[in-house]
Computed example of a mutant assay.
Amino acid sequence: MDGILLIDKPPGLTSHDVVRWIRKTLNIKRIGHGGTLDPAATGLLVVLVGSATKLFPYLSGMDKEYTGEVTVGVATDSADADGAITAEKTVEGPLVIDEALMELCGEREQVPPMYSAVKSSGKKLYELARRGVTVERTPRPITVYELERTSPVSYENGRARFSFRTRVSKGTYIRTLAVEIGERLGYPAYLSMLRRLTVGGFSLKKAHSLDEVARGDYRLLPLLSVFSENMVIQAGEKLARKARNGRALDAAEVGSGEPEIAIANREELIAIYKRKNGTYHAERVWN
């Protein structure tokens, strides 16, 4: 069994929990996922089955789209609803939220949160955070392509809440983005809800619930669905044979100017090639 399984992750489960459940339910040995969702978050989890596990590096770099909710006036140690409260400040007067969101768009750097899987000296940050240890983290380049408010702002008990939608590059932490929104507004803040809508070209609209998977009511997408149409080269017999053997390919015989291509035979992914000095060299081959 090889392919890509789109799952609508329910709240309360880690991404690893979901993968482990699918492994047991479908009796699959090789399985992984293409990008973590926090336990409290819901939405699209891209699960890689069989030989599709080799595609992780290509999924991890994809843009992602989310909807969520920010609560202003209180902060937590994990920057989401699961954390312990660390700061509170009564929200007074109307907040100029849209301007703050616009300021956070574009290319910039972001410091990963302590509650993350980023490693420091071989230790995952969340392991250190659970022991009460805080370390310096290196800022990482990110891009926030879109960030907009999608609901009125509600004010209650000295706090403010609003919903948003955002599209971001790889490496962007939405929990940190919620904290940054609060900083722009002059208040503590945390991410009170998060739902992932897309990962690259994959959409939550085509995702399956765990109940559907348990009933056998699901469909695996082909490995080629990871790549855009302009990256996929449908190979003839000669080109396919060379690709299966991982041989270098001349750009002229490939007929592409893309920096990276996927050689295919109909829906079968044969190999991924990268271009260097006018020649394509095999990066991964599926045998």
Rank of each mutant, 00 (worst) to 15 (best):
G257Q: 10
S121P: 02
M114W: 05
G43I: 03
N245I: 07
A75M: 05
L191Q: 13
E212H: 06
P141G: 03
V153G: 00
A41Y: 01
G200L: 15
A251G: 07
K54G: 07
R241F: 12
A79K: 02
K54T: 10
R137P: 06
G171E: 04
L26G: 05
E127D: 12
Q234S: 07
I31T: 15
S169W: 00
R215G: 14
H281I: 11
E283W: 15
G158I: 05
K89T: 15
T25E: 14
K123N: 13
V49D: 00
E180C: 06
W21K: 11
G43P: 02
L224A: 13
R161T: 14
R149K: 11
R159I: 05
E148A: 12
Y115R: 05
K242V: 04
M62A: 13
P113Q: 04
A87N: 13
V111N: 07
L104A: 05
L45H: 07
L128K: 09
K29G: 09
T198N: 09
V74C: 06
K9M: 08
D77F: 01
A81H: 11
K242I: 04
A240D: 07
Y155I: 02
M114E: 04
H281S: 07
L194N: 12
A87V: 12
W21Q: 09
M231Y: 07
Q234A: 07
S120M: 13
G83N: 04
K119E: 10
E253T: 03
S256N: 04
M1N: 04
Y145P: 02
A189S: 04
A84G: 11
S120T: 11
L191W: 12
R247T: 09
L37V: 14
L224N: 09
Y190E: 05
H16K: 05
S60T: 14
S209G: 09
